[in-house]
Nucleic acid binder design. Sequence first.
DNA 1: GAATTAAGTCAACATGACTGACATAAATAA
DNA 2: TTATTTATGTCAGTCATGTTGACTTAATTC
Lengths: 192, 192
Amino acid sequence: MTDINDPLSEPLDAKRRAGAAAQSKTLRRSDAELLAYAELLFFAYRDFTRDPDAILRDFGFGRAHHRVLHFVTRHSGLRVADLLDVLKITKQSLGRVLKQLIDKGYIVQRAGSADRRERLLYPTASGRALLKRLAAPQLIRLAEALKAAGPGADIVVRRFLRAMINAEERPKVSSIMSSSTAPDSDGNAEVS
Amino acid sequence: MTDINDPLSEPLDAKRRAGAAAQSKTLRRSDAELLAYAELLFFAYRDFTRDPDAILRDFGFGRAHHRVLHFVTRHSGLRVADLLDVLKITKQSLGRVLKQLIDKGYIVQRAGSADRRERLLYPTASGRALLKRLAAPQLIRLAEALKAAGPGADIVVRRFLRAMINAEERPKVSSIMSSSTAPDSDGNAEVS
DNA sequence: GAATTAAGTCAACATGACTGACATAAATAA
DNA sequence: TTATTTATGTCAGTCATGTTGACTTAATTC
């Protein structure tokens, strides 16, 4: 498996060449080898989402609802704007999904105390219960995968996944992840 | 961050309890800790797909086209049925995307030599060129993430991602991954 | 010769993205 | 105080990509 560098057949590869140059100081991994990780990531993500997707169908929800419910539950009290920034979708797109979750009583909104324009989002008791059910198979999968990956996998995997995130997004990700709500600790988040 | 075990407030958690039992022999990871990996995986995948998605737009294609082109190029000569099994989508869903890729000259089909009902799929030269462009930012990202994850990350990450795949799918994944086409080696895959 | 299999197609529909325009209420600036 | 900006919500239309169900064609297998 030789290191292939064909300068032809590609008119617009400035980015790629820049990347190759950035890499060349250290261990040079072949494209074929790296593509294997891309495939594994695809398969892993494909199966990671399948269990909750099946459950969601019974509720008339989709994956988008799971994502919203997840971030609202785990980082309860976050603003709509925060959610948009995390999900990287448009307000209109979020709107529909969020509305359904609110209408069916899985999420509630409260006006911000400092800025009353803000709508802070909180899960209801049934919202937390639903999320728990959705997350359950994923938690099992993650625990088993970390175990299978061997000792020290937790740190390595965390570093790997973090580094896969756009550099400029990492501070925001760290910020939101540090403000995570303890599961079931604040039992009175569901206000009428 | 204490280990939270609340036996109440969840009527349908048989699966979760089973998972907890399966885990309990070894290191018990808290749900909160594990959920952090779920979030990282979401963020990683979100950003992993953003670069190629932007390029695809210029071609009037979507992520589905990238996936098809990827598997056809990297595992050229695979059957339509193989592709369906890999992608886990319906024939009709694949049909539309595949037809567009064929019509625009990125993929060609040849009847199988043993079984002439089979349509074996191959990339054209422009198909390979397009895939290269789509994969370029992902390869850079993967190489940098593996480097950032530290020594030994390649093996650990591979084991982790593999274990994230449904157990019954792993043999198939291994099988298809072992039959990967070397990039640019068989220059005459594009037959008229 | 009949049944099965691989692939393709037609039609209808759902989900979740998108753009663009506009409305409302609250905060902030002039 | 008035004007502007900001946070949110909403209407309308479009697109990509998934789904079900029914049916056809060609080739293989029983």
